[in-house]
Amino acid sequence: MRWRAGVVAALAVAVLLGACGGGEEPVAATASRTPKPLPISTPTSIQQRCFVPVEGGLTTFTGPEGSTMPGAVLGEGADVAVFLHQTSAAGFCGWATYADWVASKDVKAVLVDLCGWGRSACKGGFAADAEAQVRLLVDWAREHGARRVTVVGASMGGAIALGVGQRAGADALVDLSGPAVWQGVPTAGEAAKETTVPLLLAVAPGDRGMDPPALRAAVKAAPAKHKRFVSTRGSHGWDMLNDGALTEPKWSPLAHDVLAWVKGEYRAG
């Protein structure tokens, strides 16, 4: 029976320790092993968000019903370029280095996450209305002193630029590898027939998914006084503008052509 007495004595000691607060130690030890979630980091600059060496803060363009399209504005100047991105989970980030370069040339560059991409949060009919989204940006540029607003799009953004850019109030359009047919906007052929503002369209002959022959025909049919079709050597969308380097990229002739278009220097093709 002596073992029972020992057990009873041990239990009595445990109860006494608990009553004196000694029982808190195991609880504290257990809590310390529970992982604590790391704080959520919200980027406040282009560099933090896009992981590129571009300085500049972030902003938000607000649409109807509380819709938000995050973006950024670089540079100063009366000539404004509104950049529409291609299909990318990162939204506007692929434009960041080029926008930084044109901003150093007296151009105000507007970057944005279109609805459904990047960090945008759009609601209601605005979410599917490409024209309304582009108009919001063009109007913002006008309200902030723009003399000329050029909508520049790559791939998906190019199709949107050509498809609805003029109707949204743009003074000129640049379409880099925009597919001839894209959901939610008129086809390149349909839009070009009504395009009277300066139009620059570039695509590589081998980029067959974009239908280069149809794009060339669209530019030819456009009634715009200033229009140019550029057949590039290769690449697609914004990749046609530089050699892919994140720091000090080498800008292609097309990159200079786009800059000239934005500044109202319409060169014949």
Results as ranks from 00 to 15, higher is better:
L246F: 05
R233P: 14
T44Y: 03
A9Y: 05
A172G: 11
P205Y: 01
G244E: 05
A10E: 13
K193R: 13
Q86N: 10
V15K: 06
D139S: 10
E25W: 04
K263T: 11
R4N: 14
A224V: 06
V258E: 11
G264P: 07
G169A: 08
V134E: 15
G71V: 04
E143S: 07
W238E: 15
F92S: 10
F92I: 06
G94D: 10
R49P: 09
W117D: 15
S177K: 02
W117R: 09
A268C: 04
L201P: 06
T87Y: 04
L173R: 01
T34P: 05
A180Q: 02
F126Q: 10
V102S: 05
A141S: 14
E24G: 08
W117N: 15
V219I: 05
V110H: 07
A221C: 07
N242M: 01
L215Y: 00
A141F: 06
I40H: 07
R228T: 15
A146R: 01
A218W: 00
A268Q: 08
E131T: 04
G157H: 07
G165S: 04
T30N: 13
A268K: 03
K193H: 09
P53N: 05
R119I: 10
G23E: 07
A214Q: 03
A29M: 11
A99F: 03
D113H: 02
A217D: 04
G269F: 02
D175L: 00
T42C: 02
V152N: 06
D243A: 06
R142P: 13
T34I: 08
P39I: 01
L11V: 14
R148I: 09
Y98C: 11
T150M: 04
G189N: 00
L16W: 09
A245Y: 01
A204D: 12
K220I: 01
E190T: 10
G189I: 00
R33D: 15
K108W: 05
I160T: 15
G18Q: 06
G184K: 00
A31Q: 06
P64M: 03
A28Y: 05
E143P: 01
L176R: 03
W251Q: 11
L111S: 11
G57Q: 08
A121H: 10
Y98M: 08
T42P: 02
K193D: 11
E143I: 00
S45N: 06
T30G: 13
A146Y: 01
L176V: 11
P253H: 03
G94L: 01
A81M: 04
P186G: 07
I46E: 12
D100C: 03
V230D: 09
G178D: 06
A170V: 06
S32F: 09
G6A: 13
R267I: 11
Q133K: 03
A109S: 08
G57M: 04
G94S: 04
G189D: 00
F51Y: 08
D106N: 11
E76V: 00
G57V: 05
V164R: 03
E248S: 08
L241E: 12
R49V: 07
G66P: 07
L11P: 12
V203Y: 00
I160G: 13
E24A: 10
R228L: 10
P26K: 02
A28C: 08
T34L: 09
